[in-house]
């Protein structure tokens, strides 16, 4: 028996898909346009704007910075977030509920405000080097993803499994690595990806913390756009999207995407 679907529902779904995918098509189109300005639909077809990215040293430099920050900031955030998520899940009946919400604050506070206060206290107040300030800032803004996503995995983890390991002679610290972590791997990978992407695309916090000689790719993109309105901007965007898709694809290949939703 065929299930009947209302035509309006179909129309609405199609509309949503257009809305979601439309911008991607426009960016992709603009990136290959053989004009010296951003335009859509593309006129002509060229890949020179992609090679142009690597000829502008500021892009190459900030790209490295951005990747370094995304990996370093996420790693730092995980180092804090995993133990925090573990404690929140393991002792969820003993700990007050608001503790878990504290880790979401970086999402709730407007990023502009967060960026400003970080600049005021960390960059200016404590006179921390720019790169380190950026690293701390990025670790902070991705912390909610690490704690929440890893936490979701841990909340469905049966802690008697950990106790079983301990009863079989495995010390607690070792049980954490041999039994707990392998079983929340999905959450850690999902959290890492979300955090990595968030960090890679961040503008509002980074803009306050970048300084002379140190910038990130999205900030450089803004700076570039103020001076040149050429399709390089679109091609950098395509590249950023490409990285995101590539990361997703690797996960899909190695673990399966259902892994992320498990």
């Amino acid at each position: 028996m065929k299930q009947r679907i209302h035509p309006l529902l179909v129309a609405f779904a199609v509309l949503v898909f257009f809305f979601l995918l439309g911008p991607l098509v426009i960016i992709l189109g603009s990136a290959v346009s053989d004009t010296s300005y951003l335009t859509f639909p593309p006129q002509g077809l060229t890949l020179r704007w992609f090679s142009n990215i690597f000829e502008i040293s500021a892009f190459v430099r900030t790209m490295k910075t951005s990747f370094l920050l995304a990996v370093g900031g996420t790693a730092l955030s995980m180092a804090i977030g995993i133990p925090a998520a573990y404690a929140l899940a393991r002792f969820r009946f003993q700990l007050p509920a608001f503790l878990g919400n504290i880790y979401v604050l970086p999402i709730l506070i407007p990023e502009i405000v967060l960026g400003f206060s970080l600049m005021k206290t960390v960059a200016i107040g404590a006179d921390v080097p720019i790169m380190l300030a950026l690293l701390l800032g990025h670790a902070l803004i991705v912390l909610p993803y690490c704690v929440r996503v890893v936490g979701a995995s841990l909340n469905s983890f049966d802690f008697s499994i950990e106790e079983a390991a301990v009863s079989l002679g495995c010390p607690r610290w070792k049980a954490f690595f041999t039994v707990v972590l392998p079983n929340v791997r999905a959450g850690i990978i999902a959290g890492f990806i979300l955090a990595f992407i968030t960090s890679l695309n961040d503008v509002s916090v980074s803009i306050f913390l970048t300084g002379p000689g140190v910038s990130t790719l999205p900030i450089q993109l803004l700076a570039h756009m103020e001076q040149f309105f050429d399709p390089t901007i679109a091609s950098v965007s395509v590249l950023l999207m490409g990285v995101t898709v590539a990361v997703m694809a690797i996960v899909e290949r190695t673990l399966g995407l259902t892994f992320l939703t498990k």
């Binding site: 049966d158 008697s160 499994i161 106790e163 079983a164 301990v166 009863s167 079989l168 002679g169 495995c170 010390p171 607690r172 049980a175």
Partner: peptide, 14 residues
């Protein structure tokens, strides 16, 4: 706990 050498069987199997 890990030094007690006791065999444990859990309700949830664990």
């Amino acid at each position: 706990a890990h030094a007690r050498n006791i065999g444990l069987v859990f309700q949830t199997y664990a």
